[in-house]
Simulated scan of single mutants.
Amino acid sequence: MNMRFKGILAALLFSISLGFSGGVLAQEVAPINVNTADAELLAELPGIGPSRADAIIEERETNGAFESAEELERVNGIGPATVDRMRDQVIFE
């Protein structure tokens, strides 16, 4: 029984330590300005890799700045689902 108690205590302490470290490790990330960000930064957005990041830059240089998340759908390969995943991570200034 003593061994069982030690196991439960160890599991409890481990769980508590994970709870505390979650707050320390979690960081609030600043939104990315789609109209000024470079390809490397844009590629960090969910659903956007290097080729779509390049396409975003090409689209904004050709057709002007984006004014909303929905306008990102102008870019080939970016649809409503991708826009929804990144909506809270982008700004348009």
Rank of each mutant, 00 (worst) to 15 (best):
I8R: 01
I91S: 03
E70G: 00
V83E: 00
L25W: 14
R87M: 05
A30S: 12
A81T: 07
L72R: 01
R87Y: 13
I48H: 00
A26F: 15
A65Q: 07
S51K: 09
M1G: 05
S51C: 08
N35V: 06
F20G: 05
E67S: 11
A55W: 03
V24D: 07
D54T: 12
L42S: 02
G79Q: 00
S68A: 06
G7R: 04
I56V: 08
D54L: 06
E67W: 07
F5C: 14
M1F: 10
E61H: 08
R4T: 10
T36N: 08
E73Q: 11
D38Y: 07
S68E: 13
D54C: 14
V29N: 06
L9T: 03
D54E: 13
K6W: 15
L41M: 08
L18S: 03
R52E: 03
A26V: 10
E73R: 00
G64R: 04
D54F: 14
I8A: 05
L45K: 00
D54P: 14
A26K: 04
L18C: 09
A37D: 15
I16F: 08
E58N: 06
E93M: 11
S51F: 14
G79W: 00
I56H: 04
F66Q: 08
A55N: 02
L12R: 03
S51G: 06
V34L: 12
T62K: 11
G49V: 02
A69Q: 07
F14L: 09
S15W: 04
R60T: 07
A65S: 08
A39Y: 14
I8L: 07
L13K: 07
N33A: 15
L42E: 04
E58W: 06
N2G: 12
L25S: 15
P31F: 03
I16V: 13
A43L: 08
S21R: 09
P46R: 01
F20V: 13
L42G: 00
R85T: 08
M3S: 10
R85I: 15
F20K: 11
D88G: 10
I56D: 04
G47A: 01
L41A: 13
M86N: 00
R85S: 10
A39E: 15
L72Q: 05
I56E: 04
I48F: 00
